[in-house]
C-alpha cells in the first residue's frame, strides 16, 4: 500500500500550482467561456486551445458522496468520505468533506473548498456550508 499520488499531466501543473497558492484556478475557454476539469489541451465543446487560467469561487453543491470502509492508501484511513461537488462554475470535482457533516443525505448540500496540507502537498478539501450560513 502506498501514499496517494497526484496525476500530474502537462495540463495539470498550473492547476496544482494554484492549489498550492490556496486558490484553485481552472482553464476557462476563450471561445465559449466554459470551465473544464480535469485540465485539458483543448475545450471539449469547440476544440479551442485558447483558455485563461481563472480562479473558481470554490463554492458548489454535493451531487453524491461515499464512505470508504476499506483502506487503499496509507494516507487515507477508513472510515473516510469522498464527495462529488458541482462547482458554481460548472465542473464536477471530487474532494473530501472535513469538519461538520450533514445529518441524513448529503446530496444538495452546499459546500466550499478549503485548502490544507496532506501527505506533503497542499490540496483542497470541502467544508459544509450549513443552510443558515449558505
Amino acid at each position: 500500500m502506498g501514499i496517494s499520488k497526484i496525476v500530474m499531466g502537462l495540463d495539470d501543473k498550473p492547476m496544482w500550482a494554484s492549489i498550492e497558492r490556496g486558490a484553485m484556478e481552472l482553464q476557462k475557454c476563450g471561445e465559449c467561456g466554459a470551465f473544464r476539469y480535469p485540465p485539458a489541451p483543448v475545450c471539449p465543446h469547440d476544440l479551442s486551445a485558447d483558455a485563461e487560467w481563472t480562479p473558481v469561487s470554490g463554492k458548489g453543491t454535493i451531487l453524491s458522496w461515499v464512505v470508504f470502509h476499506k483502506q487503499y492508501f496509507e494516507d487515507h484511513v477508513p472510515p473516510y468520505n469522498s464527495v462529488a461537488i458541482e462547482l458554481e462554475e460548472g465542473p464536477i470535482v471530487v474532494s473530501q468533506l472535513r469538519g461538520d457533516e450533514p445529518e441524513g443525505s448529503w446530496i444538495g448540500q452546499r459546500v466550499e473548498l478549503i485548502y490544507a496540507e496532506h501527505a506533503g502537498r497542499t490540496q483542497h478539501f470541502a467544508r459544509w456550508l450549513k443552510p443558515e450560513a449558505a
Binding site: 497526484i6 461515499v66 470508504f68 469522498s82 473530501q96
Partner: peptide, 16 residues
Amino acid sequence: YHAPWGFTSQGALYAM
C-alpha cells in the same frame, strides 16, 4: 485521477 482524496477503485465510482 481522484486518488489525492482517497477516491479510488471502480467500486467507488459505481458507489458514487
